[in-house]
Design a binder for these strands. Sequence first.
RNA 1: UGGGGUGUCGCCAAGCGGUAAGGCACGGGACUUUGACUCCCGCACUCGUAGGUUCAAAUCCUGCCACCCCAGCCA
Length: 557
Amino acid sequence: MNQSSNFIFDIIEQDIAPGGQFFGKTVHTRFPPEPNGYLHIGHAKALEIDFGAAERFGGLCNLRMDDTNPTKEDEEYVDAIKEDIRWLGHDWGDRFYYASDYFEQMYEFAKELITKGLAYVCEQTPEEVRLNRGDLSTPAKSPFRDRPIEESMALFEKMRDGEFEDGKMTLRAKIDLASGNFNMRDPVIYRINRIRHHNTGDRWCIYPMYDFAHPIEDALEGITHSLCSLEFEAHRPLYDWVINHCSVPCKPRQIEFARLGITHTVMSKRKLRNLIEQGIVDGWDDPRMPTLCGLRRRGYTPSSIRTFHERNGVSKVNSVVDYAFLEHCLREELNRTAFRAMAVLQPITLIIENYPENQTEVFTVENNPENPEDGTREVSFSKKLFIEADDFQEVPEKKYFRLFPGNEVRLKSAYVVKCIRCEKDSAGKVHTVYATYDPDSRGGNTADGRKIKSTIHWVDADTAFNATVKLYDRLFDVESPDLADCDYIAHVRDDSVITIENAKLEASLRDCPDQARFQFMRLGYFCKDAKSSNPDEPIFIRSVSLKDSFRPKNDTP
RNA sequence: UGGGGUGUCGCCAAGCGGUAAGGCACGGGACUUUGACUCCCGCACUCGUAGGUUCAAAUCCUGCCACCCCAGCCA
């Protein structure tokens, strides 16, 4: 499937080769989202790596909700996460798990550590722990570090039994208070928190911390390779410590990779949530959001997103990929697969003066010139048409070769017409253009073989229907709104969505199914919005524009 | 000041001692019943930097510089 390798796949390959630590084993990975928000395209990168590794080596990938902190998590996200993963085309079979399903075993492993003298109950307050953490040159300290094993054990059991109030004490791993790696300075591995857990209800009032829980979750599931993002690199010694000191069934290997950044967007849950709360976007599935549900609504296909990630590769360099590359991946696919249709977004009237009144012809148009197998459809033509305002200039600018007085253009698949004159309103805006047609150019080819430089799209005023079309564009006007010192809210574009109420669409678009994707010729790729369309009022969303070398899209600073 | 990472074209990214792949973006041209698509051509004598080893270095060694992550009872 994906033939290109990366440093992680190279490592796995070595691990399962003769002499490797997982020789003879099935590669087993996992995707472990925390159910506290919606998945975005950055998560999709991890998905591609986790499920991709399993696929590549004939292994398995589990889906596991990493729900060890009930304060932040909620079941409401679980189904949405599953839906997004399925949409991307990944299958976890029957291996769907909750980290919370292992609480009992984690508790036992914690007791094992206490028994071994490798964990102790610490009664410092959160503030005291922070104060006693030391600094770059000073070791941490805890007055409870050398408390007897039996005492810690009794206290820990009472913690579970709910005998102490929240925050009163913690269970800490006894590792190295002087370590240069702060994660090893006797990290807290259990805390008391009386809050109902979405999965375990009120069964627990103590919850394990990520650094303790995650390696156990992995080991219990027989994970061979635990792939995560770069910020966990400094946690790996702790991950290995837990694996080595608890009697877990296997020793997974953690490998870290750089998370994805994309220009002109923000990726952190906090910032995305903020955009919603401030009413800047309509919700998690707003088509401008980098969430998977947002991209789905925008018209992105699963395969375009997977292609995007595959071609970006995997490394350990903090990288920010150009938004244009995401757009490229979508265009590339849709050019191949989307049916063409004609739609006029900024209509002006075109009257063919020498065309008979009340006459209608039907023309046959290819659905996709890139793929003849997609067949054809019929569109009607008559004396009065709509064309794009952009396709006419009374006084043509340099190199303009569309419609202007005296010039000929071809109406896609119909006739060659010659512009005669135009009519303007009181404000000087052109509303009607008059032309004559060449009856010998039926279908678009001239009888005398003269070349027509330009072909424009059109719709028949008699059969076209009005629809709302929403033109979405990037949300921010700066390349890196996600930088820590960037006031990203101040850089939200006020024209990131332009709503066109009365676009004129060709009749065939009227009854297309939700989410159907089209190329509106010469404009871009659009899809029918399943969320806001009514049976009688379809609403179309622009997924991405077509490239335009006449007026290159100027990139905002 | 401690620990862990990373530095190859504007942006991603191959490269693993033998003399800088590819994609995006960009510029030029051809073709075109979408100024799209497609197709050509151009786009790093140079790999953060300074030395060293070698017949030969982006690849090995040493120093320096820059940037990122870590002191939550978050993940």
